[in-house]
């Protein structure tokens, strides 16, 4: 299946102090088709297609590994916390049921 534009949006503080705990907020556009809905015209189930994996790395080290299930809403939002260590990239990777991956990178400034 073709890649769709999930418009990943990530919010981190503009700058953080070393050792601080800060919140990372993420939002993507995705229908998160649950596999439970029925196409009313054909009476067939609409096949499941959700983002099933969300992995975040910070300076190359994995800091969050989430398995997403159909119970998450469409346009999934997720927020979590991190400890500021060194300035560096935060890489967010979403994977859908068709094994398409979507990436977003944000540079974190640590003072």
């Amino acid at each position: 299946m073709a890649k769709i534009n999930i418009k990943p949006r990530v919010r981190v503080p503009r700058s953080v102090k070393k050792g601080d705990v800060f919140e990372v907020k993420t939002l993507v556009f995705h229908k998160m088709e649950s596999g439970q809905r029925v196409n009313k015209k054909t009476a067939k189930k609409i096949p499941r297609n959700i983002l099933n994996r969300f992995v975040v790395t910070y300076n190359g080290k994995e800091v969050l590994d989430a398995v997403w299930q159909p119970g998450l809403s469409a346009n999934p939002y997720m927020a979590f916390f991190l400890v500021a260590e060194e300035s560096g990239p935060l890489v967010f990777t979403w994977t859908d049921d068709n094994k398409e991956t979507y990436k977003k990178q944000v540079m974190l400034k640590v003072q």
């Binding site: 705990v21 910070y58 080290k61 800091v63 969050l64 590994d65 989430a66 398995v67 997403w68 299930q69 119970g71 998450l72 809403s73 346009n75 999934p76 939002y77 997720m78 927020a79 979590f80 916390f81 991190l82 400890v83 260590e85």
Partner: peptide, 17 residues
Amino acid sequence: GSFNLGPHNGKAQISVR
């Protein structure tokens, strides 16, 4: 969903919809 965390998270709190 399942969310795997670690000491690098600082605070064991997650928000989802």
